[in-house]
Design a protein around this nucleic acid. Structure first.
Lengths: 194, 194
DNA sequence: GTCTATAATTCGATAGAC
DNA sequence: GTCTATCGAATTATAGAC
């Protein structure tokens, strides 16, 4: 029935996904201001006006492109040492296979919606895992989760954005070996490293 | 002798410093793109054209405003535990008393000259201190210094830029107690925390 | 559903008067 | 040494044809 005369009917949903994909790449590579709608549309092979028509504004486009799921595995049963190693390794892999985290961290310096999404990932994904692993709740669990986030995001910042030479050159296993004891320390709590 | 007829002679050097001060604040608060020359000039109480005349371009203005000295104290003689505590405390104080680090970290996401300045601070100030404290040289010292930087910058990122609630709420002494064992761990090297 | 054309801002930078 | 006026470029966003 719904078959009137629709002239150039290409798949609208596929176009949306192509735009979102290009947007993530551009935001990740250039930050918010320098990632122009023109450039994003060019990468996606569509007209710039289409981008506005689909997403309303540049701000809304970013919000749509920067939704993120850490996809944390269930580590509830593991000893803290193994869980910490898995956590660092998972974070490195997840970062490198998906542009979204890079886009979020880059744009967070200038755009409040990126900050809000990062805070949501922290509260909804990182904090619950830390609660489960540490057996703590409330302020204590929140502080431990915050410290874990400070080290993981600091690692991403220095390795992938600043490209600090020694960190950019280290391989995954070396990083896991060096950093995971720190994560374990934060999960255990207290002031000493045991 | 040099006393021709100079009409509105206010102090040019003071004007330069006023502009630099306003620039640091704006870059720190808004990032590079949103910190417009017009806004900086407005804060400094001067004409926008003067800013260009004095510094040549926005890019050169940023370079001039974002020069940074960590002013690290000499910790060479201290035991690692005390040196680590002093390091974390000094970093927190230095961050909060000077807008320059905030400007550098914010702008680093989009501007290569900010990254270059941060890398220079790392190579010229952090790495030498880590060498002296750890007694290491070459790649080993560089990696340890890089890991120290990852935790310190991650702390700044999550506390001052993202304002992650638990981290933003913690006071200096609590942060020193929680984080300094990590710095000590990185300074000592190895994979375990002793 | 897609594209052309353009409106409406905003900003960096310049020229020149005072 | 400082300010007025403005240029030229780039951008987001809209209106409307096809």
């Amino acid at each position: 029935m719904t078959r009137k005369t629709e002239p150039p009917r290409r798949d609208a949903d596929a176009t949306r996904h192509t735009i979102l994909r290009a947007a993530r790449q551009r935001f990740a590579a250039d930050g918010y201001a320098r990632a122009t709608i023109r450039a994003i549309a060019g990468d996606a092979g569509v007209d710039p006006a289409l981008v506005i028509r689909y997403f309303g504004s540049k701000e809304l486009l970013f919000a749509a492109a920067a939704r993120f799921d850490l996809r944390l595995p269930d580590l509830a049963g593991l000893p803290l040492r193994e869980a910490s190693r898995a956590l660092v390794r998972h974070f490195l892999v997840r970062w490198e296979e998906d542009d979204t985290l890079m886009a979020l961290l880059r744009v967070a310096s200038t755009n409040d919606s990126a900050v809000a999404e990062l805070l949501a990932v922290f509260s909804g994904q990182v904090k619950p895992l830390v609660q489960a692993l540490s057996g703590q709740e409330g302020r204590e669990a929140a502080e431990r989760a915050g410290l874990v986030a400070s080290q993981m995001l600091g690692l991403a910042l220095t390795r992938y954005i600043l490209r600090l030479p020694p960190l950019a050159a280290m391989d995954h296993e070396t990083l896991v070996a060096r950093v995971s004891p720190v994560i374990e320390h934060y999960l255990r709590g207290g002031d000493r490293i045991a």
